[in-house]
């Protein structure tokens, strides 16, 4: 099976602080992998590197065989991303925002309009299509962020804490959307919420202090450690 994402020996220093230490991962096509770890483990740094938002101190990332740091535009055209809690231009409406992003991603005019309606309905923002985003709550922005990630129907989804800022109902709905949206896609999701990880992904890459501690199927980790929670606690023990 061809790899969708190959992370090859990624190391990242922030002003001398080692955030990621020689991380290597291979994520196969249509696989769903959660990047699990405590706060400050290097999850967001990894996802930012995969999206080409930051440059590595050493190492490389390949998206469907294309090096992100050499052919960035080609590589990230395959991605739908939700990194940290993004903000949107407050003066634009969701329709205008998605229209802007869709056009940048080369979507055709006629298809774009229909797809905008579709994704806004999917994230339950259909009644807010033409309302300026300045009126949106954090949860609504998070839904819109998910909508823009799914807009161009990308083969790979990169999601950083997708349920962050959502109320319990929103969290449940988001997980439901992701379960549906992941079909036929590769999902690489960063989270420290075990419940979210178990519901959305089948495989886990557990990192701590920038180092990969385990990379296996959740079922295998549960068999080995008793539960994913125990695996998490054991492998990240003494990190804080």
């Amino acid at each position: 099976m061809r790899e969708s994402i190959v992370i090859d020996g990624l190391t990242k220093y922030y002003n001398g602080f080692l955030a990621l230490d020689n991380l290597s991962l291979k994520i196969k096509n249509k696989e769903d992998v959660a990047l699990l770890g405590p706060n400050g483990a290097g999850k967001t740094t990894t996802l930012k590197l995969v999206c080409g938002l930051i440059r590595p101190s050493s190492g490389a990332v390949y998206i469907e065989g294309t090096n992100v740091f050499e052919e960035r535009e080609k590589a990230i055209s395959k991605l739908g991303t939700l990194i940290e809690t993004p903000e949107f231009y407050p003066f634009l409406t969701p329709r205008e925002t998605l229209s802007y992003l869709g056009r940048l991603r080369g979507m055709e005019e006629e298809k774009l309009e229909d797809r905008i309606e579709e994704v806004l309905e999917l994230v339950r923002l259909e009644k807010w299509t033409d309302v300026k985003i300045e009126k949106f709550s954090r949860g609504m922005k998070q839904r819109l962020a998910l909508a823009q990630a799914l807009l161009h129907d990308p083969p790979i989804l990169i999601l950083d804490e997708p349920a962050l800022g959502l109320d319990p109902r929103g969290m449940t709905e988001t997980r439901g959307i992701l379960k549906e949206a992941r079909k036929g896609k590769t999902v690489f999701l960063a989270s420290h919420l075990l419940a979210e990880v178990i519901q959305v992904c089948r495989k886990v890459a557990l990192i701590d202090r920038g180092r990969l501690q385990a990379y296996d199927r959740i079922s295998n980790l549960e068999r080995k450690y008793g539960s994913l929670e125990k695996a998490y606690l054991e492998l990240t023990e003494g990190s804080i």
Binding site: I76, E87, F88
Partner: peptide, 14 residues
């Protein structure tokens, strides 16, 4: 500063 770059920059545009 406003984090809008998290939506704008991960697009296939230079």
């Amino acid at each position: 500063e406003n984090r809008t770059g998290y939506v704008l920059f991960p697009n296939p545009v230079k």
